[in-house]
């Protein structure tokens, strides 16, 4: 589909990749960190404020600084990807720790008592039971990331944000609105997907007596 001189389909695919990959990577990085913060009071005192502090770095500064650090070309989408992954980690470390905290002590004690080792306990008991709280955290990270992708357009990385920057320059309102509405719609769609995934992983959470 072509409009405003752009292949909209391509912009949408770029936008989705730039938003979804950082959330997935962020989750993979945040899981061990969050688990550590959950296990150790000392680690938590450092990790949670530190990851929160990452969020205070202005995104544009980060996007511009990353190429210096990683020696990537200034226009590479990788810079946006890395920046957004850092923000996702910042949001998710705390979420993972809190999701693991939400698992009842009685259940983890019982799991240890029947002979789970730490890894089996995490993968077989704690993570599955942490899914409801974790899903809530991932949804926040996902929505945030979808809106932040547009910042990449300022340094020339393509996404629906490109329609906004170019639209402003050309004083073309319909183009700007298409960019805004499109990026909001994508954020909603993926929010619903995360919600659906979380629910499909937790059929037990909707079971009540007499069902």
């Amino acid at each position: 589909m072509r409009a405003f001189g752009y292949e909209i389909d391509e912009l949408v695919v770029d936008h989705v990749l730039l938003a979804v990959v950082p959330v997935l990577l962020g989750l993979v990085i945040a899981l061990p960190l969050g688990w550590w913060a959950h296990r150790s009071r000392g680690a938590r005192r450092v990790l949670v404020p530190l990851s929160g502090a990452l969020y205070t770095i202005p995104s544009l500064a980060l996007i511009v600084f990353i190429p210096v650090l990683l020696a990537t070309p200034i226009l590479s989408p990788l810079n946006v990807l890395v920046t957004l992954t850092i923000y996702a980690v910042a949001l998710l470390v705390r979420s993972v720790a809190e999701a693991l905290d939400s698992v009842s002590d009685t259940v983890t004690t019982a799991a240890v008592a029947v002979g789970y080792r730490p890894t089996g306990l995490l993968l077989g008991v704690q993570l599955p039971l942490a899914v409801p709280v974790l899903t809530a955290g991932v949804r926040v990270a996902s929505v945030t990331t979808f809106s932040m992708v547009t910042v990449g357009a300022l340094v020339g990385v393509q996404s629906l944000g490109t329609l906004m920057t170019d639209g402003f320059q050309q004083d073309y309102t319909a183009m700007v609105v298409t960019g805004i509405v499109g990026s909001i719609a994508l954020a909603f769609v993926f929010d619903a997907l995360w919600l659906g995934l979380g629910r499909s992983l937790t059929p037990w959470s909707r079971a009540r007596a007499g069902v």
Binding site: V107, T109, A110, V112, A113, L129, W204
Partner: peptide, 21 residues
């Protein structure tokens, strides 16, 4: 410890069942 525990039955207060199984 893990092998030892698999060889000892343990019943906890409030059952401690795994809600997701």
């Amino acid at each position: 410890p893990a092998l030892l525990r698999r060889g000892i039955g343990y019943v906890i207060q409030q059952a401690g069942l795994f809600p997701h199984r």
